[in-house]
Computed example of a mutant assay.
Amino acid sequence: MNRPIAVVTGASAGIGEATARALAAEGFHVVLGARRLDLLKGIAAEVDGTAIELDVTSASSVAAFLDAVPKAKVLVNNAGGARGMASVADADEDHWRWMWETNVLGTLRLTKGLLPKLIDSGDGHVVTVTSIAAFEAYDNGSGYTSAKHAQSALHRTLRGELLGQPVRVTEVLPGMVETDFSVNRFDGDTTRAAAVYQGVVPLTADDVADVIAFAVTRPSHVNLDRIELKPRAQASASRVHRG
Score class of each variant (00 low, 15 high):
residue 133 A to H: 07
residue 133 A to S: 15
residue 133 A to V: 04
residue 133 A to F: 09
residue 134 A to F: 04
residue 134 A to P: 02
residue 135 F to M: 07
residue 135 F to S: 13
residue 135 F to A: 10
residue 135 F to C: 01
residue 135 F to R: 15
residue 136 E to C: 05
residue 136 E to L: 08
residue 136 E to W: 09
residue 136 E to K: 07
residue 136 E to Q: 15
residue 137 A to H: 12
residue 137 A to T: 15
residue 137 A to L: 11
residue 138 Y to T: 12
residue 138 Y to F: 15
residue 139 D to V: 14
residue 139 D to E: 15
residue 139 D to T: 12
residue 140 N to Q: 10
residue 140 N to S: 13
residue 141 G to A: 07
residue 141 G to H: 08
residue 141 G to M: 09
residue 141 G to L: 06
residue 141 G to P: 03
residue 142 S to G: 14
residue 142 S to R: 03
residue 142 S to F: 08
residue 142 S to T: 14
residue 142 S to M: 13
residue 143 G to K: 02
residue 143 G to Y: 03
residue 143 G to C: 13
residue 144 Y to T: 06
residue 144 Y to N: 02
residue 144 Y to P: 01
residue 145 T to H: 14
residue 146 S to A: 15
residue 146 S to G: 14
residue 146 S to F: 10
residue 146 S to V: 07
residue 146 S to L: 11
residue 147 A to H: 04
residue 147 A to W: 06
residue 147 A to P: 04
residue 147 A to N: 09
residue 147 A to S: 15
residue 148 K to Q: 14
residue 148 K to A: 11
residue 149 H to D: 03
residue 149 H to I: 04
residue 150 A to I: 07
residue 150 A to D: 02
residue 150 A to H: 02
residue 150 A to V: 05
residue 151 Q to E: 15
residue 151 Q to A: 15
residue 151 Q to G: 09
residue 151 Q to V: 03
residue 152 S to C: 05
residue 152 S to G: 10
residue 152 S to T: 13
residue 152 S to P: 00
residue 153 A to I: 04
residue 153 A to R: 10
residue 153 A to C: 04
residue 153 A to H: 09
residue 153 A to N: 08
residue 154 L to E: 02
residue 154 L to A: 07
residue 154 L to R: 00
residue 154 L to S: 03
residue 155 H to Y: 06
residue 155 H to F: 08
residue 155 H to D: 07
residue 155 H to I: 09
residue 156 R to Q: 12
residue 156 R to V: 02
residue 157 T to C: 13
residue 157 T to G: 15
residue 157 T to D: 01
residue 157 T to L: 11
residue 158 L to P: 03
residue 158 L to C: 05
residue 158 L to G: 11
residue 159 R to S: 11
residue 160 G to A: 13
residue 160 G to F: 13
residue 160 G to K: 12
residue 160 G to M: 10
residue 161 E to N: 03
residue 161 E to G: 10
residue 161 E to T: 06
residue 161 E to C: 03
residue 162 L to E: 01
residue 162 L to H: 02
residue 162 L to N: 05
residue 162 L to Y: 02
residue 162 L to S: 07
residue 163 L to A: 14
residue 163 L to N: 01
residue 163 L to D: 02
residue 163 L to R: 13
residue 163 L to P: 00
residue 163 L to Q: 07
residue 164 G to W: 01
residue 164 G to E: 01
residue 164 G to A: 00
residue 164 G to C: 01
residue 164 G to D: 02
residue 164 G to Y: 00
residue 165 Q to T: 06
residue 165 Q to P: 00
residue 165 Q to C: 01
residue 165 Q to D: 00
residue 165 Q to E: 10
residue 165 Q to W: 00
residue 166 P to W: 12
residue 166 P to L: 12
residue 166 P to Y: 12
residue 166 P to C: 11
residue 166 P to G: 10
residue 166 P to H: 10
